[in-house]
Design a protein around this nucleic acid. Structure first.
Lengths: 166, 166
DNA sequence: ACACTAAGTATCAATACTGGACTTAGTCAA
DNA sequence: TTGACTAAGTCCAGTATTGATACTTAGTGT
């Protein structure tokens, strides 16, 4: 399977990963969420070559996740800022952070503390069910084909029609 | 920066991505969450070579995310099941799904519908603040160094000490 | 004229991935 | 009792993709 084929799969995970599911793309996004905006800063913080930075920034810009804006003229210089579409990826990073904090906190504790301005508390992110408001556990979820499923075969020794997640 | 260096960074995102932030690893995990357990099914569903499947399953097993269990003897056959540590990655996939459903739902609607057995409703995942219970937006979060931060330099034209996310 | 900066590109070497053959330990069918 | 088949892999060669180094561009400052 190729990268571009991913985009066409009837699966929101595959389609999302086609957009930002690459190692460096995810790290570039992390930098964005940390407030980094300039090409040179992305490169310096990540310690990777300019080729990758340029490629990933272009990719994210093409997909409407970052916006390239000139912040000065003569010579023209650019910054990359998150669009609404990009900001909406934040829950993914909160979830990743939560998992990392839980299983790899380090000897002295977590590396970063996240503070919620609205309620003025340090917090963790919790994934809840939109309907009942309870935290969701993988074992309590069943995935069924939706209206956009189309017909495609998979195998897991059961059909996809009623499959327990996990 | 190399893959292994990622693991040592004082950042839960970097450390988590070192474990599962690879394209194929993420897709293997998706299959796991869809109920796939057997080597041959991972390979068939993903349409990738056995070499990669073997490599990624070993990687996930080594990191305690999947568990390799013999489900029969004579001849011995194995299945790969999610551990608690693995199941706890589920919120990451819920968040990815939510984003994909929002921005790439397809013409006919979402490809998969997720059903919460506990409340018997189809649902979406929402990332909320553990303290106030409100949905978290990237712009409302500030990241500060935590107890495990150590001293390391970054640049974003500001210090890391008080940085708005986004 | 020369050094310097931010933001890139071009070239080529390193790495990751594919596809096929092979392995192992067993079953089933003729 | 040979031959075909299965699941779960390994190994190897060739190809495709990725990434690091050096170069480019368009401007400023001295």
């Amino acid at each position: 399977m190729r990268w571009e084929e991913l985009e066409k799969q009837p699966c929101s995970i595959a389609r999302s990963l086609a957009v930002f599911g690459d190692r460096w793309t995810l790290l570039v996004l992390r930098e964005s969420f940390m407030g980094v905006k300039k090409f040179a800063d992305f490169q310096a913080n990540l310690g990777i070559s300019k080729t990758i930075v340029a490629d990933r920034l272009r990719h994210l810009t093409d997909h409407g996740i970052l916006e390239k804006v000139a912040y000065q003229k003569n010579p023209v210089r650019y910054k990359y800022k998150l669009t609404r579409k990009g900001l909406d990826i934040y829950p993914v990073f909160l979830s990743i952070t939560r998992w990392g904090d839980t299983y790899y906190p380090g000897k002295k504790g977590v590396p970063l503390v996240y503070h919620h301005k609205n309620c003025d508390h340090d917090f963790n992110a919790v994934s809840i069910c939109s309907e009942c408001g309870e935290p969701v556990d993988a074992r309590d979820v069943i995935a069924r084909p939706g209206p956009g499923a189309g017909s495609y075969a998979r195998s897991a020794n059961e059909t996809l029609s009623e499959k327990k997640v996990g």
